[in-house]
Amino acid sequence: MTVWRLEWLRLIRTRRWMVLAGPFVFFGLAGPISIHYLPQLLASEFGDGAIKLPKQVPAQGLAEYSAQISGLGLIIVVAVAAGALCIDATPTLATFYRTRVKSIRTLMVPRYTVIAAAAVASFMIGTLAAWYETTVLLGPVPFSKVATATAFGSLYLAFAVAVVALASSLVRSTLATVGISLSLLFLLPLIGIYRPLGRVLPSALAGAFGSVVLGEGPGTFIRPALLTLALIPLLLLFTISRYSRREV
């Protein structure tokens, strides 16, 4: 039983994978359907021709998935990640792990990697579902756009999980970790209102998926992506350092 297998079992046996993947798949299927049937829905509510919609483009199906999942999906990822990353939430369990490993890194790296990978995989599965449904109902969307958009979205989720790891080193309880993580993640876009910062902060990646599939070039998101890539290991290093100094 390696630490990696332990984390895999944590994901499978606690049904965390279902909690993660379920909403992504649901919204992946529901997003394009709601766009496809939007004219009929409006007509049945307000009458034919009462509301005129602009001509639909296929990418709107994927953009709708992104809009629906960006808030709820992030909250679910944060909550599930906190459950796995709060090593000291139960002191007696922390004693078991901490008195056996050389460094807290032995525990933190697999926990972060597995939960981040699961979040990214869930997002990708949801995206595949949304892409399939969009293609069937609304029309094709180029693979390159979907792949680029998915890469940015995945990077943001990996960053969100790193923020959860950091929060778990600041407080002990899972609930407090969720609260701090969401505060930090929702605070970043507010800082991003100041445009020079907003263009480079990781929060710029939160809306990258919708923007890219709707036609915005990936160049806009290169700088925040590079900063995010640099920040993730830094956050993890800081987290490990905080855990190493913390008493149980």
Partner: peptide, 26 residues
Amino acid sequence: WAMCPDAPTFEPWLTPPELLDLSGRL
């Protein structure tokens, strides 16, 4: 060194052989 606290808790979804194997490997 190895330490056993007074009210030990473990991952509830592990079986005893898995836990002992994990403990030794760690």
